[in-house]
Simulated scan of single mutants.
Amino acid sequence: MSFPIVRNRRLRGSHALRNLVRETQLTVNDLIYPIFVTVGTNIKSEIASMPGVYHFSLDRLEEEIEEISGLGLQAILLFGVPEHKDAVGTSAYAEDGIVQQATRLIKKQKPDLLIVADTCLCQFTDHGHCGVIEHNSLTNRSDVKNDLSLELLVQTAVSQAQAGADIIAPSNMMDGFVHAIRNGLDDAGFEDIPIMSYSVKYASAFYGPFRDAAHSAPQFGDRKTYQMDPANAREALREAEADVIEGADMLMVKPALAYMDIIRNLKDHFDLPIVAYNVSAEYSMVKAAAQNGWIDEKAIVLEMLLGFKRAGADIIITYFSKDVARWLR
């Protein structure tokens, strides 16, 4: 059958009718809000390239957590900006590291708020790479050593779990990182802590503002030997499959906006929850355009996040979380 018997517009005739037949829903339960904590006192400092996003010192963190909780958000992704950096990222796995201290404070304040701990070394190393660097005198190159890095990433994950993190989210893109961290957590008695793996993380230009926020730009070279080539899609399935085999509980695609085909591919091939990371430049571009009056920010953001859900994302990490929570109310 076709027109005039079939009239697709019949189901679009009113707001209530459109709500009734809507295929994709966005709720506050889908969202994770990233937070940046730093050393010092009385710090609430706006990140210049990310309007509305701040660095918080531990003594100013309580007010932010109260606001997040009051908006109905149930989960945060915790990033730390340390005072001390060295070649092996010691403060990433120190008992008194900035992330560990923040985790304990938040859990004391809001025990039911889910804390997702970003598990990487780049914010904590003086070279800004996500692992241990060794210099090869024969090739005159400095490279990230995969297996040595795994040992430190396990220490970081275990220390985060000991501090009270609910979910470990390794973002380093070393080969075998899920296997190593799963074994490390299990051996330490944290077999019930899930791993939200940054399974498909591209070497993307969309991370620029984040590197300002986390003070994590590499001091030499780039991360293209461990993060993925943006041109590759089949490789994303290999990366995700490896993480599934190694024990990941959730699979992430990062960035999200230019990679919705990858989100859909993972959704079609794996039965684990799929996470989309709506990254810093995706946020900053919208904020900049909105501040110039060029776009309707609310409409753009809600359409974008619905697009992630429609592509297959079950969970969205976004700096818009607080805004969206207000709009959905």
Rank of each mutant, 00 (worst) to 15 (best):
D261L: 08
S171C: 14
C122S: 08
A169S: 15
S142T: 09
Q123Y: 09
L272C: 03
L11H: 12
L148W: 02
D30P: 07
F308R: 00
A117R: 10
E235N: 05
D323L: 04
D143R: 04
M304Y: 08
R264H: 14
N146S: 13
H179P: 01
L73T: 04
N265Q: 15
H55E: 01
V275K: 02
Y202L: 05
P51Q: 07
T90G: 09
L328D: 07
K201P: 01
V99P: 01
T41A: 12
H84E: 14
F124N: 03
A313D: 02
L77G: 01
A240N: 07
H269R: 15
I98W: 08
K44Q: 12
E46P: 00
I76D: 01
V178H: 08
G189E: 08
S69K: 09
E67T: 12
A161K: 00
A217R: 11
M260Q: 15
R223E: 01
V154K: 04
A203T: 03
K309W: 00
I65E: 02
L302A: 00
A169R: 11
M196H: 05
S2Y: 10
L185D: 05
L78S: 01
F3S: 14
L71Y: 10
I106V: 11
A169T: 10
Y283S: 04
S69L: 05
I76F: 00
D143A: 09
V88Y: 09
T90P: 03
A169P: 00
A87E: 15
K201D: 03
D112V: 12
V99S: 06
C120H: 02
Y277S: 00
D222R: 05
H15N: 14
L31I: 05
Q100S: 13
N140S: 11
R310F: 01
R22S: 15
V39Y: 14
Y283R: 06
G13L: 12
I35C: 06
G13E: 15
H15C: 08
N140G: 02
L31C: 06
Q74V: 02
W327P: 08
I98C: 07
S91F: 06
L20C: 13
T119R: 06
I65D: 00
L11T: 10
M285Q: 12
A299H: 13
F36L: 09
I167N: 05
M250C: 13
V200C: 07
Q123S: 15
M285S: 04
Q109V: 00
A289M: 13
L78P: 04
S45W: 04
R9F: 03
R7G: 03
G70K: 12
I43Q: 06
D243N: 14
G70A: 11
E297M: 08
S321N: 05
G13I: 09
E95T: 14
I262E: 00
Q291M: 14
V275H: 01
G164M: 08
Y277Q: 04
E62T: 06
D126M: 04
L114V: 15
F206C: 04
A233I: 12
V81S: 05
K322Y: 06
E134L: 09
I193K: 09
R223N: 09
V21K: 12
I32W: 10
P273K: 11
E191G: 14
L306Q: 07
E95R: 10
E134K: 12
S2H: 13
N183L: 13
L17G: 11
V144D: 07
N136G: 05
V158L: 06
P82N: 10
V301C: 09
M1G: 15
V28Q: 08
Y202A: 04
